[in-house]
Amino acid sequence: MTRYVIRRLLQAIPLLFFISLLLFVLMRTASNPLVTMGGKRVPRPEDRERLARQLGLDKPLYVQYVYWLIGNDWAKIDMDGDGVAETPGDQKGVLRGEFGNSLVIRGKPAWTVIKERIPRTLLLMIPAEIIILIFSLVIGIFSALKQYTVTDHVITGISFVGYSMPIFFIALLSIQLFAIKFKEWGLPALPPNQMFDPQVGKTPSQIALHMVLPLLSLTFVSIAGYSRYVRSQMLETMSQDYIRTARAKGLPERMVLYVHALKNASLPLVTIVGLDIPLLLAGAVVTETIFAWQGMGFLFIDHVSRGDTPVIMAILMIVSVAVVVSQLLTDIVYAWLDPRIRYD
């Protein structure tokens, strides 16, 4: 097992390296941070030239990538534009734990910009993942136990619809219904956006209240998909020999269901949850945009349009590492839950 983990980690290194190169080239060629530095109007040509030089954006792409990767404190930069590089660089580079400085807020490390946002995104994602797990298990099992009843079919139907919905459509519908219509009808309405009501302040109850609609949008699609999956796994497990044996031994039906069947049916769900992380992160981009939840997704959209390569790269690399790690964890948990599986 240890060997397997080490091998996977070693494999992840070239993988992340390749991803960073691909994304860096795409980002740097696809966007221009200098243009948006002037506010309402485009900066004067002289200022664009100077800022490009000071920020190292006039260097060839591969040099920029190398600086991003290993820093530029071993090289000199031409800050004053006389053609002679005289000022030593101060970037340390990603490999030495620095993502560089943001281009939108020059002088602010990209990591500082992101650091404030990560807890906000996690605040949405962790409860979302828990809700997804609990609800898809409960609904899936319930549906499997009630196989071919009206309830089962209604659930199946709804989950199909849910699975076919874009997250933003659910978000818009839920805003329309729970925030706008409810208010019209005089019912207790939910807040349609932001993390808390500024006039009340950042109290836990405020944040909880503001989390309801984003969570609904984030979890609905996943629950719809996974509950169907749990149902079919459950049905398949229940038709297995060992369940029949357990029943034949005279174990109580509850025991058979909840211990044997459930355990085996939930196994594949672990894999899915692992794969779900990227999906949730992407969902967060849309959800955070609609609900003005100022997390990483919101930051991503804001800064991608202003060409803030260091911040965008930092977000994407953090996400990629999260994905790699979560896949690895999934494998480990899977092996731990199912002793038949060995990785070597």
Binding site: L15, I19, L23, P278, L281, A282, V285, V286, V319
Partner: peptide, 8 residues
């Protein structure tokens, strides 16, 4: 390609 979430 799988590692980077598709939407990003």
């Amino acid at each position: 390609m799988f590692t980077i979430p598709q939407l990003f």
